[in-house]
Design a protein around this nucleic acid. Structure first.
Lengths: 349, 349
DNA sequence: TGAAAGTACCGAAACGTTTCGGCTGCACCG
DNA sequence: CGGTGCAGCCGAAACGTTTCGGTACTTTCA
């Protein structure tokens, strides 16, 4: 069916060996011969059999990517962007990208084993690492080359890329502080998400630096169902916050709804910053100030890091932490005047 | 490194041949031997080398998927869902899924050639087919087994899956008609999108059946930039529509904004139905009635169809058209009373 | 009881590539 | 001029699997 190296060899009257060496740009083939072989290969529409190559050199020239689908009810743009980034870095290095979408909640990485041991891929990128994720140890024990997207907390003897959530939260809060806010609430998701820990840490850090941390304004473990009620209660308390940092788009929307109900306007009476920039955040009224994760970039880095470690395994674990950027839109403004009775001595940076 | 069939053979004192036949469940191996071989394979954590297998049987047991990334500014949930569906059908049949994400606008399918000719995959699913897409003919000429997601118009000598956009539009319009509406506007995207043609056709069909088609209410080629202005002008004309069918979430949002500006409330003064159900549509205020595309299902069907055609090439092209479903939410209601001066004699079905 | 049929296994070749070692000529050197 | 080195090419083995054809032994049955 397909053209093989032998066909080319016959065609130019040389050996298969020389054809192979020519196409792989080895040294001891005469330049003229090389050119001729390349031309014929082109003409015959030759594409090397990947299986034979893999079998021989024991390298698949392919990477595996495990993305969680069906886990989140609201499909985030994050995964698509991440995939795009990783695909780009794979394309750049001429390796293929295999997808292993895990629907199931059990999240067993057994399929990795088949992919890696069966030499289908050389390594895998595993996503959505939780703060205490068993998959990391499993992968380490199985000696499967991998890069994680997301961190476990308190363990870093493996390769990962992650967004610097602490820096993002800190930057957001500092921006609010510069606007005069001191009562800044935090609405977070399930604490087992990898990012939760770090976002909260950044939030703490920034508030502690002006000694304005109030545990009463901190909420975690919120869901799409519980968010509206919590948002309402936060805004209705007598000493309500003047700003909110929300860890997901739907949390921010819940806050905005609640504010509207309470007759508060954004950003005049309440500033809102949301984690993760996506279309629904951008199109909200008003468009939201957001901590934007460079998802595509993260995908690229994950691919690059994995390829790097495959080529030089002696390097040991390496991490790439990418700082998110604060995109200032119209949901943030100065602290409202009438709330200035606040006791805290905020120093406007 | 990895365990091979030879290792197992040595371990049980049999030949490689028998090991292979046992693991592939061939007939002439004694049941007891089979069990023993399986047990040892398990114990040695054996995973067959995919490359060797592919090389020998000339089948990759893998499918390629080409998804367009970076084309749409607003990442739709559609692609992620589609990927998930295709991944599921691949998993079900024990074949792997290779991703070939095309960022570039040129959309050259040259990489397919490498994948298919190099026996990396057995066939490909190619997405986002436009109404007149050159890739279809290229694939046909190159004799690459493929299934398209989306149709060209006026050509169907190839395999495709698609959503029945005409049926979706028709159902939506008929629902509006049942609510008493007769002046129903259509806001569409770029006509070269595959779905545009069919959605419009369904819209026409439904309106013609009650002789209420007014070309003045039909707009195509809208973009995120032009949508707000068009929406305003549509709603400000003296004989304005009482309902709108929007072909994308941002078109619907533009209409709702414009309505709000004009002092019209949804659904009391204006009904809105949107194509494609996604989080931003669901969370809109009010939540929108939507034509929901079964994207995951489409991905599954695409995978199944491709595998089916690979197994039985003699079948020739086959199509799978999946009807979308109308999800009724709060953005649609009866025709407003004060608009009943309308001349059309609408028969409420 | 001898042939035929069936069962359970095996040897070896093949898939298409890469690569090791070796082979030819030719140029260059003392 | 004999030897050395090098440029350019090649044969053959190997990667791990599947499968064709065959063999040895057992059972069946005329």
């Amino acid at each position: 069916m397909g053209t093989t190296a032998r066909d080319i060899a016959r065609h130019v009257g040389l050996s298969v060996t020389t054809v192979s060496r020519a196409l792989n740009d080895h040294s001891d083939v005469a330049p003229a011969t090389k050119a001729k072989i390349r031309a014929v290969a082109n003409q015959l529409n030759y594409h090397p059999n990947a299986a034979a190559r893999t079998l021989k050199i024991n390298r698949a020239n392919a990477l595996g990517l495990d993305i969680p689908l069906g886990l989140h009810r609201s499909y985030d743009t994050i995964w698509l962007e991440f995939i795009g980034g990783m695909a780009a870095s794979c394309a750049r290095h001429g390796v293929d990208l295999l997808l292993s979408a895990t629907d199931d909640t059990e999240r067993t990485p057994a399929s990795f084993e088949r992919l890696v041991r069966g030499r289908r891929v050389d390594g895998v990128v595993v996503c959505d690492i939780r703060s205490d994720d068993s998959r990391v140890n499993w992968l380490l024990e199985s000696d499967i080359p991998f890069v994680a997207f997301g961190r476990t907390v308190g363990q870093d003897d493996y390769c990962y890329v992650d967004v610097d959530g602490a820096a993002g939260a800190q930057e957001a809060v500092q921006y609010l502080i510069r606007l005069g806010h001191t009562r800044i609430a935090y609405l977070g998701l399930d604490a087992t998400f990898g990012f939760s820990h770090f976002r909260r840490a950044g939030y703490h850090e920034a508030l502690h630096s002006i000694r304005a941390h109030d545990p009463e304004l901190e909420f975690e473990g919120l869901t799409e169902e519980t968010a509206p009620a919590v948002a309402r209660s936060v805004l209705s308390c007598p000493n309500r916050p003047t700003a909110v940092l929300a860890s997901a788009d739907f949390l921010a929307l819940a806050v905005i709804r609640a504010a509207r109900e309470a007759g508060l306007s954004v950003p005049t009476d309440l500033s809102v910053i949301v984690f993760d920039d996506n279309p629904s955040v951008q199109r909200e009224d008003p468009p939201l100030t957001a901590v934007s994760q460079p998802n595509r970039r993260l995908g690229e880095e994950a691919g690059e890091l994995l390829l790097d470690r495959l080529n030089r395994p002696e390097q040991g674990p390496g991490h790439r932490l990418i700082a998110p950027s604060l995109i200032i839109r119209s949901s943030t403004g100065p602290r409202p005047r009438n709330m200035e009775s606040e006791g805290t001595t905020a120093t406007v940076a």
